[in-house]
């Protein structure tokens, strides 16, 4: 029985690894931690598999698990001097393996660094909507928010990001 569950979770891993990896990477900006939390997400999925009732998709359920882990990690990091402690650019740079991305490395690094400076809630909603392309309904489900809150927070997050980029506006 455990073997069946294991195979099921490993199938999920093949399907959703990239999404979960990217989500955690954008939330934490730290490759090593990212790998640790991807691992923890799927191990937790394995242990909590009985609680998964197919009311949401596997992808949104995995995002919910990953969200708890990253929020917990961000709380830990609020302890003094952690944020400045972990190098960012060096970590991210080794995550590129697409030629087109390498060509735009500087711009992407800057944008990722800007996203890292946003409040955790802004980062969550922006990553899920703009990077992972979840629907507003899915984001609301993952974050356990109302859809109105998702829209408002996204709008504020984009506004903050625009300010960092020193530009005018973008509609969400």
């Amino acid at each position: 029985m455990n073997k069946d569950r294991e195979e099921l979770v490993m199938d999920w891993y093949e399907l959703h690894y990239d999404d979960i990896y990217r989500f955690i990477l954008f939330m934490l900006g730290d490759k090593q931690y990212c790998e640790d939390l991807v691992h923890d997400t799927f191990v937790r999925a394995f242990t909590a598999i009985d609680g998964f009732e197919n009311r949401s998709t596997v992808r949104t359920w995995l995002f919910s698990i990953a969200k708890y882990l990253v929020i917990d990690e961000i709380r830990k990091r609020k302890r003094k001097r952690f944020f400045s402690a972990v190098g960012f650019s060096e970590e991210i740079a080794s995550s590129f393996d697409v030629e087109q991305i390498i060509e735009n490395k500087e711009m992407i690094l800057l944008q990722m660094q800007n996203i890292q400076k946003l409040k955790p809630n802004y980062r969550l909603v922006l990553t899920l909507k703009k990077i992972e392309e979840c629907t507003t309904k899915e984001v609301a489900e993952i974050l356990d928010w109302s859809e109105v809150k998702v829209r408002k927070t996204l709008s504020r997050a984009l506004h903050s990001l625009r300010k960092m980029n020193g530009i005018g506006g973008e509609q969400s």
């Binding site: 990477l25 790998e35 995550s95």
Partner: peptide, 9 residues
């Protein structure tokens, strides 16, 4: 955003 979506390990 399209470029950022392509980031993977």
């Amino acid at each position: 955003w399209k470029l950022l979506q392509q980031i993977r390990s």
